[in-house]
């Protein structure tokens, strides 16, 4: 959970930075950042923490490299810090041999590599199951996962949908190329079929998204939603959409202690009402709550949301 929210923490508005200083420090201490050379994802910096960790684990390097078939020279250069950047693949080999597990005591780079290893294994083990599904079902899984996500700028849904429709082999290659894509695929699978491994925060969000899909029901309604999502490129606007639909489920399922119809009786005089109502009918959601939730946003933000929503 944190790895996603940390990205939000870093861009939190300055007024709140002081208030959440301790959380930010705690997050920084444990967040799984790899210190890459020129942002390369296949290498990590060989910092003191990593060297100390490995030196503690590997008592006799020569013997260790011989038993596990690793290059003694490379291992020696990693351990004494001569090698400034280490290939992720090399570290994966060492960690597998050492049987390292997740721990807060590990340097964060170690946990980062372990997480990459886990994600890759999970993807390889579960790809086949998803691959058997129809294109609509796979796209639904991806959309639901996207609507549950915190960080949206790493995934281009339109590309995912196109490849799902056209070529599964290419989709597999496309996912394997990028760690964020692997993580996204895994999340989609876990949310649908393996929710014991999911953080409760995402489970709750998925509950909301599932309720929305149940209400929309027919494939033709959900297809329209897929089209809407794949037509939007800006992560900020996609987040607005996600918030809108989550709020829709919350508000439409709350047993309000006042007459919502009565409170919203003036809605018909809103010049946008008819358009919003038409769109809600198309995707088969309640026009009243669909309209109400457009008020999640105010003034200019609402105008820009409606422009996107009704385009």
């Amino acid at each position: 959970m944190l790895c996603n929210y940390y990205k939000k923490l870093r861009i939190i508005e300055p007024a709140c930075k002081k208030e959440y200083h301790d959380s930010i420090q705690l997050a920084k201490k444990h967040f799984k950042i790899a210190f890459n050379k020129g942002n390369r994802t296949d290498e990590v910096a060989n910092r003191k923490g990593l060297q100390t960790f490995l030196n503690e684990q590997i008592k006799i390097p020569r013997r260790f490299s011989r038993i596990h078939g690793l290059s003694h020279t490379s291992l020696y250069r990693i351990l004494n810090g001569d090698m400034k950047f280490v290939k992720v693949e090399t570290l994966k080999g060492i960690f597998t041999a050492l049987n390292v597990t997740f721990s807060f005591k590990n340097p964060k780079v170690v946990n980062h590599i372990l997480s990459l290893m886990n994600e890759k294994d999970y993807f390889q083990n579960h790809w086949q199951r998803i691959n058997r599904f129809s294109a609509f079902k796979v796209k639904s899984l991806f959309l639901k996962s996207f609507m549950t996500n915190v960080v949206l700028n790493e995934i281009n849904l339109s590309e995912w949908f196109d490849l799902t429709d056209s070529d599964r082999k290419k989709l597999n290659e496309f996912i394997r190329k990028d760690v964020a894509r692997i993580a996204f695929f895994n999340r989609a699978f876990q949310l649908a079929f393996d929710d014991d491994t999911i953080h409760p925060f995402y489970k709750a969000r998925y509950t909301l998204v599932n309720q929305l899909f149940s209400e929309m029901g027919a494939m033709r309604h959900i297809t329209l939603l897929m089209r809407l999502y794949s037509s939007i490129k800006s992560a900020e606007k996609l987040e607005q959409l996600n918030v809108y639909f989550r709020q829709y489920v919350r508000y439409s399922t709350t047993p309000w202690r006042f007459d919502v119809e009565d409170v919203l009786s003036e809605r018909f005089s809103d010049p946008n009402y008819a358009k919003i109502s038409r769109f809600c009918k198309k995707i088969n959601i309640s026009e009243m709550f669909g309209y109400l939730c457009t008020w999640e946003f105010e003034e200019e933000e609402r105008k820009s949301f409606l422009k996107m929503f009704l385009s």
Binding site: L26, Y202, A204, R205, N242
Partner: peptide, 28 residues
């Protein structure tokens, strides 16, 4: 349970920060 309710009820990261702090400290 706190994490579940945070996910269910809130979207605003600034509001969530209050509760994330508890979740992070207790997880550690």
């Amino acid at each position: 349970q706190l994490a579940w309710h945070c996910g269910y009820w809130f979207d605003d990261p600034v509001v969530l920060m209050n509760y994330l702090d508890t979740i992070l400290v207790i997880a550690v």
